[in-house]
């Protein structure tokens, strides 16, 4: 298989993994903290804590995680067809 396809497959799984994490974070804070009676809510920057963590912090955190993932785990590959020699070298 073209080595670039292996990289691509790996990155597709990484993206899927991050999406799963993103969902878990979003769900756990929203319904974990948000299911309490409103009287017991705590507030951060004026917003209910469940909302702050799930939506505001989650947004910032996952934007940052995307940055980390792309910078450290994603590889740059050429898109045009590699010359035969390069193919040999890669093998």
């Amino acid at each position: 298989m073209d080595h670039r396809f292996k990289i691509s497959r790996r990155e597709a799984w990484l993206g899927t993994g991050l999406a799963v994490l993103n969902f878990v974070w979003w769900y756990a804070f929203a319904y974990g903290l948000g299911s309490k009676p409103v009287k017991e809510y705590t507030y951060i920057l004026g917003l209910p804590a469940w909302f702050f963590y799930s939506c505001v912090a989650g947004f910032l955190l996952f934007s940052f995680l995307v940055f980390l993932m792309v910078t450290f785990l994603f590889k740059e590959v050429p898109f045009d067809e590699p010359e035969e020699k390069e193919k040999e070298r890669v093998r």
Binding site: D2, A12, G15, F59, F62, V70, F79
Partner: peptide, 20 residues
Amino acid sequence: MAQLVTGYFTLAVLGKKFAI
């Protein structure tokens, strides 16, 4: 906020393979 994931998921999944 379920839409946050569209920012990275589509490109990560279709990714380089689609472009190549």
